[in-house]
Write a protein that binds this DNA or RNA. Sequence first.
DNA 1: TCAAAAGTGTTTGTACTACACCCATGC
DNA 2: GCATGGGTGTAGTACAAACACTTTTGA
Lengths: 227, 227
Amino acid sequence: MKTFNQYQNPALAIDLVVFGYHDTDLFLLLLNRKEEPFKGSWTLPGAFLQMDELFRDTCIRVLKTKLGMANLYLEQLYSFDEMKRDPRGRVISVTYYALINPKKFEVVAGKMANDVKWFKTGKIPNLGFDHEGIFKKALQRLKSKILYYPVGFELLDEEFTMTELHELYESILGIHLDRRNFRRKILDSVYIVPTGTKREGLQNRHPDLYKFNKQLQANKFHLNIDL
Amino acid sequence: MKTFNQYQNPALAIDLVVFGYHDTDLFLLLLNRKEEPFKGSWTLPGAFLQMDELFRDTCIRVLKTKLGMANLYLEQLYSFDEMKRDPRGRVISVTYYALINPKKFEVVAGKMANDVKWFKTGKIPNLGFDHEGIFKKALQRLKSKILYYPVGFELLDEEFTMTELHELYESILGIHLDRRNFRRKILDSVYIVPTGTKREGLQNRHPDLYKFNKQLQANKFHLNIDL
DNA sequence: TCAAAAGTGTTTGTACTACACCCATGC
DNA sequence: GCATGGGTGTAGTACAAACACTTTTGA
């Protein structure tokens, strides 16, 4: 059995679209580049794949070493192959998107205090490389995914109120959803279960708390919305 | 601006899941390998990405040179990164799936007569590499895609009858769909348009012919089926 | 005139939409 | 007791499912 030649392969980068959610707004995590190309521009975090790494390992390495994050929702998005997407040469980018609860992973101040920042997804600056296209594709994916798969919980606290879940959906989809119909739809599925406790210390009525139903096998949930 | 090192990148292969449809059956195109590894096994057609090629170019090259096909529906499926998926070394595989009408591209007899063959998707032999997983993922994608996007037309003739379209859907989804409800649903969307002609020369009533509505912009078609 | 497949319509149930009132809490 | 947000129910509508008869054709 011959082994093939391993020269002349394009470089392989992994780029990450990291979504966070806080206070009714969806955020995107961006890095300010300190090197050419696109020095000074905001870009998606990423790294080149090491020979002994799986894609997912690279994602975790990026998130951990650069951002101090770990253990979050990761899903492969798409692979980008445009010839001129990196001015340094041919680079294929395999992209993933991640969902995190920013509360759990405060971006630590330090040498990179100004290098890493959350941006509201409605107000993204010009991005380096082809990262704007990647971000848009990720947002689109998130929107369609959330319609039929319980993906939003990664963005919330372990326990959450119906209103929080509702606002999350409205924020991601960018549309208004009737509060009462949303509640019924979610509860009719076996999507979430009540914890039996209520959120305390609010100025008004204390709302019920829920958590994600991890036992969920066959999930019949489906929001019927045209994007 | 530094240029990065281009050594030590994994090899990058493009593998193709080619679907064909004929006579109420969905088929998969497979290649019989004449070299190690997996000599004698059936595998998905594929090739290594050339430095000056886009993914899509590689797909077309494979389909054209090996199979004499061109101009078909192509969509990126997923990128596979398992460490041991190729015994020769680290190979990343970016996969695409294709839909073709086998009538238009008869696999030509010749030196590769026994090397290229259509298999019913219900009776796939053991495949080399991790190609069984790739095929399964492609089939899953096709099933969910066909529910909301007019993807099936690539598999049929330019003009087709309602029954043919109906049987195609049943065959891909693997379930029974009520003939009359299917017809109504399809016609209520602006999915297809009648050509005004009928299929002639049949033993029984001559069915109306339709074609895909290429003007279709906002497509509200959606089959509400849990897979 | 018969067999085989194609065309058509109605009824029934279910699911989504829209909408308004009462309840619990802290100030 | 009042302002604020949370919890609940219902009537109307639209869509999906189930289902049967008539029509066209070649043999």
